[in-house]
């Protein structure tokens, strides 16, 4: 029990003292997760809205594909990206393996189906007559998209939260394609694994506190935005 308590005390000291190693790991995490969430939003929100608003041949297949993507095991994504970016893979020449870019690619593949799936559900939950009302007032396709995004924003923020949640806590894929290189590709989750294995309990606890605080902060911002009345 005292090991855990000592670990917590040391962790608080490291956080309060702005430990340089911690800050580097935090910034790398923010860069990778933030960029991947942003890309997943840019890809997933329009795709999800399009799937929710239109009827066409093959739509059902794409919805099933999206739902499958939402259940994709991160380590399988990691393996796939690893094989694509490894020296003998089709994109080996880009020399991206064991870089933050490779980690971002893996995380985008994990988060995008989440954003598409939750966006699709949010758009389909809107009253179909609301869509007809927007069109009847003269909206073009693009104007309809922006209006639907605004009307379904609670669901869309949930989509962003789902995407962010899926990758902030991800460890398998980023470990495989990032390599957990200290100061370069080490993020909060991979650092926690490594420090725990090496017996550096205090650092692992400090990293865990930061990870939890980060997840809480992002979800708090999303929730506050969601709950705004107007």
């Amino acid at each position: 029990m005292s090991v855990i308590w000592d670990g917590i005390v040391q962790a608080v000291k490291m956080i309060v003292g702005f430990n340089t190693d911690l800050i580097v790991i935090l910034l790398t995490s923010l860069k990778v997760t933030g960029t991947a969430t942003l890309i997943a939003m840019v890809l997933g929100l329009p795709l999800g809205a399009w799937l929710g608003l239109t009827e066409f041949r093959g739509r059902k297949f794409l919805v099933v594909l999206t739902n499958t993507g939402m259940a994709l095991p991160p380590v399988v994504v990691g393996l796939f990206v690893f094989l694509m970016l490894s020296r003998y893979g089709p994109f080996g020449g880009l020399d991206l393996l064991y870089s933050t870019r490779a980690m971002i690619i893996a995380e985008v593949i994990i988060a995008t189906p989440m954003v598409i799936g939750v966006t699709l559900a949010a758009v389909q939950a809107l009253d179909p007559k609301l869509i007809a009302q927007i069109v009847s007032l003269g909206a073009t396709r693009l104007q309809l998209f922006f209006k639907v995004v605004k009307e379904a924003r609670l669901g869309l923020l949930a989509a962003v939260a789902a995407g962010f949640g899926a990758i902030i806590s991800e460890v398998g894929a980023v470990l495989m394609v990032g390599g957990n290189i200290k100061g370069q590709t080490q993020v909060l989750t991979t650092a926690i694994v490594q420090e725990t294995r090496q017996g550096h309990t205090a650092i692992a606890i400090a990293l865990s506190i930061i990870l939890l605080a980060l997840a809480f902060l992002v979800n708090w911002i999303i929730t506050v935005t969601q709950q705004k009345k107007v």
Binding site: K129, Q133, L137, G138, T140, K147
Partner: peptide, 25 residues
């Protein structure tokens, strides 16, 4: 052409935001 339905189907926002929508489009 414009249309109004059985249900008011108001958008998020204020009354003037709603009424201004078609003009802004």
């Amino acid at each position: 052409i414009s249309m109004a339905f059985q249900s008011p189907l108001l958008f998020r926002g204020t009354v003037q935001d709603n009424v201004a929508y078609g003009l802004k489009l």
